[in-house]
Amino acid sequence: MSVLIIGSVSNDVLRLQKYFHRISIPNIHCFSTTEAAMNYLVDSSLKDELELIVLDTKMTLSNCEEICQHIHVLKNWIDVPILLSTTYEKNITIDRVFEAGIFDFILKPFDFTHFKTRIQVALKYQKEATLRKQQESMIQKDLFVAKKFQKERTISSIKS
């Protein structure tokens, strides 16, 4: 399991790393920009084990659109819950980032109990989503086999 942190405020990123270590998640990858994280993900096998992304940013009303674009790029590329770490609490702006694809947010200053709860919920969602995708894939394979079998039976009954 891996966690990706995208953030430029070093003290906040260090605190996030410390909290992840406290909840026994040691495999953490940190990047200062979304572009750097995307470049790394494209060139590595990390995307196969990535279970959570934390976007640590100073969100304001003026840069909300930019943050939404970053979230949109990440959600289009990979289906992993994204948590926004921010000090900003304005409902209208928070609604916009949820619409862009944010899964949840963690408010600063960080509270370990709050952090742990949000992370556990996101990881549970990720596991359930992965299981659902595997089940859907198996159903699609079964449907393909059933259609093929039905087609073969139809053809053999026509020939008879």
Rank of each mutant, 00 (worst) to 15 (best):
K18M: 14
E35G: 01
V42M: 10
T57E: 04
T60W: 06
R15W: 09
T34A: 14
Q69P: 00
K58H: 15
I28G: 03
N39C: 10
K47V: 10
C30W: 03
M59T: 04
C30F: 06
Y19D: 01
I6W: 07
I25R: 05
K47C: 09
V3P: 01
M59S: 03
G7E: 00
L61Q: 11
E51V: 07
I28F: 02
T60E: 05
H21N: 08
H29W: 10
Y40G: 03
K47E: 09
K47G: 07
L4P: 01
N27A: 15
S44W: 04
I67H: 01
S44R: 03
S62Y: 12
N63C: 05
Q17P: 04
S32Q: 12
V9D: 06
Q69A: 14
F20S: 03
S44C: 09
N63D: 02
H21L: 10
E65L: 13
C68H: 07
P26G: 13
T57P: 01
S44K: 05
T34I: 10
I53A: 02
N11Q: 13
K18L: 15
G7V: 00
I5L: 08
C64F: 05
I5F: 08
L41R: 04
Y40L: 07
Q69Y: 12
L41E: 02
Y40D: 07
N27T: 12
F20M: 06
E65C: 11
G7W: 04
I5D: 03
S45L: 09
E35V: 00
L4A: 00
N27F: 14
N11V: 10
Q69R: 14
S10N: 13
P26I: 07
I53D: 00
N27P: 06
D56H: 11
S45K: 08
N27R: 15
S8T: 07
Q69W: 08
V54R: 01
S44F: 05
R22Q: 15
I67S: 00
K18R: 15
S44G: 08
E51Q: 14
T60P: 01
G7A: 04
K58Q: 13
K18A: 15
E66F: 12
I25P: 01
D56A: 15
L52P: 02
A37C: 07
N11L: 14
M38H: 05
L55I: 02
T57N: 05
T57R: 01
S8G: 14
D43Y: 12
M38A: 08
C30K: 00
N63Q: 04
N11H: 12
P26N: 13
L14N: 15
C64V: 09
S24N: 09
L4G: 02
H21E: 09
T34M: 11
S24H: 09
Q69L: 14
K18I: 11
L16Q: 06
E66D: 11
S24E: 09
V3N: 02
I53T: 01
V42G: 02
Q17S: 13
E51K: 13
T57S: 05
E65D: 15
K47D: 08
